[in-house]
Amino acid sequence: MKNRIQELRKSRHMTQAELADKLEVTRQTIISLEKGKYNASLTLAHNIASFFQLTIETVFIFEEDKTDV
């Protein structure tokens, strides 16, 4: 699942540490989310979307598995 966290964070001139502090997660979690290594839970996705005042589907881009045809 892709996401726009890095783009949204940079547009607000925030560091990863600041965003992590606001969301009450570790900085490593923000790094993993931005790199796409970790998929956020529904709760965290909701918190992130609420923080950026956007909907979940605007922040997170769900891609269907192309191999599953």
């Binding site: 009450e24 997660v25 570790t26 490593q28 956020a40 839970s41």
Partner: peptide
């Protein structure tokens, strides 16, 4: 410590 203990990725 609270952030470390409640972080879902750390728990996973």
């Amino acid at each position: 410590r609270k952030i470390k203990d409640t972080d879902e990725r750390v728990q996973q």
